[in-house]
Simulated assay, not measured.
Amino acid sequence: MIKIVFSSNGVSRFCTLFLLLIIVACNKVNHTKVIAHRGAWKQENLPENSIASLKKAIALKCYGAEFDVHLTKDSIPVVNHDADFMGMEIEHSTYEQLLTKTLANGEQIPTLEAYLKEGLKQTDTKLILEIKSAPSGKERTLLLTKIAVAMVDNLQGKDMVAYICFDFDAGKLVHQLDSSAEVAYLNGDKTPKEALAAGYTGINYNYKVYKKHPRWILEAQDLGMSVNSWTVNKKEEMEILLHQNIDFITTNEPELLLTLLKKNT
């Protein structure tokens, strides 16, 4: 049996060294989280923005599932990436008209309400709601913003939903309607300070923006903002962002990113 005897000074030095080792170890842990872009759809060839792709993102235990929301002619918010659905312009079509066509897996186009209700059945994967800019202009975009925020509130989903948008005024409105909401700007033309001053809690810029402005990641984090990047599908780009300790990465390849994160832990 070996006895180790410390003097009071020795104990102090040992404790200091131990704390330093903990700090170094913690700094090596990557805390980047995975957001599945339009749900997790690619590997199983599921329709993007479908309930099925949402469920797959949840099954993978992604931090978040991103999805896109448009407003129909009769002011029903629906989940779809493009401004048209199966050749029908969403803004100029009623919800009933959109129901005449289905996704490849037989699903109908999800309403925002249906998507949120499905996502709110669990508490592991956050719902990242993108407010799409209306083709007709800002008035419809801001109407969609009001409807979306009210619906999240009515469904008691505030803790599980975060917002993203390209329209700068839409994000400002989200903050005005719900000062506790997480909302990130997508367009990449504002500095972190400018976004923060408008009420944004995060920036979510294309990978190329961070290549042009490499200091924005740390600058935003120092301001207490979250930092995300879209849409990052290549391993080498993921690894660069992981090295920069970005908070979130939005990707069409969540399985790949999850694998890389496991290797880095």
Rank of each mutant, 00 (worst) to 15 (best):
V5M: 05
S12E: 13
R13F: 10
R13M: 09
F18I: 08
L19W: 10
L20A: 15
I23C: 13
V24A: 14
V29P: 00
R38G: 12
A40G: 10
K61D: 15
F67S: 04
T72H: 08
V78C: 07
V79C: 06
H81I: 09
A83F: 08
D84C: 08
M86H: 12
Y95L: 11
Y95I: 03
E96K: 14
L99P: 03
T102P: 00
E107W: 10
I109V: 15
E113T: 14
E113A: 11
Y115A: 05
T125V: 10
L127Y: 05
L129G: 06
A134D: 15
A134T: 04
P135Q: 02
L144S: 06
A148D: 01
A162T: 10
A162E: 14
F166H: 11
F168C: 03
D169K: 12
A181W: 12
V183F: 01
T191Q: 05
E194P: 07
E194C: 08
N204R: 00
Y205M: 01
V209L: 05
Y210M: 03
K212L: 09
P214D: 04
L218R: 11
N233D: 15
K234L: 13
E236T: 12
I246R: 06
T251D: 07
P254R: 06
L256Q: 14
T259L: 05
L261E: 03
